[in-house]
């Protein structure tokens, strides 16, 4: 059984936000919704302080609290482990947003699509690119691990995590190669080998017991 997952080597991240922007372009995420932001934080104390970077995205949890909380069944976990939001089924209760410990879900509000840079309200036509792409105002969306690329790749004999066209765009774009993607159940996959060599594998918010498939190396 295939179980897609990602390992992020925090020590390699240079904080360029290329993954953040590439994700935005690939998925046309709504205004104000960033599926894969790189969080900045300071470690150490002056004079030995330095900035560190934490690439984030949906953790595609095995025991996903968003799936449990959603009253309408709009969130589901595929057999390959990818957690998807179905905007057609979403009623906008935001229960998933409250339940997610990682802040990985985003509400596409009609108003937020119209906010201009100076904070004023813009023309409703600013919504058009999003609604034309199938975004429904009032619904929640999230990172899909670029499921469309994975599905395209597997249907065309490509290997996700190896072939760029079949791999999440944040992984492909990263100049420092800090994101490694692949089949967690395949001991010979890049992601499994990387974890074995560079481990240990760590997760965010371990207290939340979500069974995250997005994991980190060098977090602590």
């Amino acid at each position: 059984m295939t179980r897609w997952g990602m390992v992020i080597d925090v020590g390699r991240c240079i904080g360029c936000q290329a993954c953040t922007v590439a994700c935005k372009v690939e998925n046309l995420s709504p205004v104000d919704a960033w599926y894969a932001p790189v969080v900045e934080y300071e470690v150490g104390e002056y004079p030995d302080a330095r900035m560190s970077y934490l690439p984030t995205l949906c953790n595609h949890c095995t025991d996903a609290p968003c799936v449990t909380a959603c009253p309408s069944g709009a969130l589901r976990r595929r057999d390959d482990g990818i957690v998807l939001a179905d905007e057609d089924r979403c009623i906008g209760s935001r229960a998933c947003m409250a339940a997610c410990p990682y802040g990985a879900l985003h509400l596409f509000e009609e108003a937020s699509g119209e906010v201009l840079g100076d904070g004023s309200r813009g023309r409703p036509s600013l919504l058009e690119p999003y609604t034309a792409a199938g975004r429904i105002p009032g619904t929640v969306s999230k990172c899909t691990y670029c499921a469309h690329r994975i599905d395209f790749g597997t249907a065309n004999g490509l290997m996700p995590g190896v072939d760029p066209l079949a791999t999440p765009v944040c992984v492909v774009t990263c100049p420092a190669e800090c994101r490694i993607f692949g089949d967690l159940d395949d001991p010979d996959s890049r992601v499994s080998r990387y974890t074995a060599e560079r481990g240990p594998r760590e997760v965010l918010r371990p207290d939340a017991q979500t069974g995250a498939t997005t994991a980190y190396v060098g977090l602590s």
Binding site: A196, P200, R201, E202, V203, A215, Y216, L219, S220
Partner: peptide, 8 residues
């Protein structure tokens, strides 16, 4: 605080 280590 060191993050909890999990199995791969």
């Amino acid at each position: 605080v060191p993050a909890r280590r999990t199995r791969g």
